[in-house]
Every structure is written in structure tokens, then in C-alpha cells.
């Protein structure tokens, strides 16, 4: 999709026709702590998935 969009824009298409809107280049204010933040978030997701599996097994057993 992005390749088709880019080609159309380069060929003179309007910004309004793009599926992906043009967005400004912005660095994130949390860039310097991205690594620990994402690691925490992934661990949180892992624990939520594990908890869902546990509840699933318990529902099945009952």
C-alpha cells in the first residue's frame, strides 16, 4: 500500500489521496528510556497473556 501511495504522490498525486497521511518527523520525548519502557510493557503483556491462559484452563476444568 505504501509503495503504491508513494508512487502516486511522486507522479503528482495529491496529499489528500494518500492512504497513509503525511506526518511530521518528530522524535519522542521518551526516546532515552524507550528500551526499559518497552521491556516493561512486553513483560506486562507476557504476564497478561499467561494470566489469560491460566483463567482459560480454570474455566475449562470447571
Amino acid at each position: 500500500m505504501m509503495g503504491r501511495d508513494l508512487a502516486a504522490r511522486i507522479a503528482g498525486g495529491s496529499d489528500a489521496a494518500l492512504c497513509f497521511p503525511l506526518t511530521p518527523l518528530q522524535s519522542s520525548r521518551i526516546r532515552s528510556i524507550t528500551r526499559p519502557l518497552v521491556e516493561c510493557l512486553v513483560n506486562y503483556y507476557r504476564s497478561r497473556d499467561a494470566f489469560d491462559d491460566f483463567r482459560h484452563r480454570r474455566r475449562r476444568a470447571s
Binding site: M2, G3, R4, L6, A7, A8, I10, A11
Partner: peptide
Amino acid sequence: GYTGLSTALHLAERGI
């Protein structure tokens, strides 16, 4: 990759 080559292919279709 996908984006770069898809762009190249769609450009080629337009004669670019």
C-alpha cells in the same frame, strides 16, 4: 524491501 520495491514497480508502471 516491500515498500522500496513496490514503489519502484508502481513507478515503473507509470513510466518513471
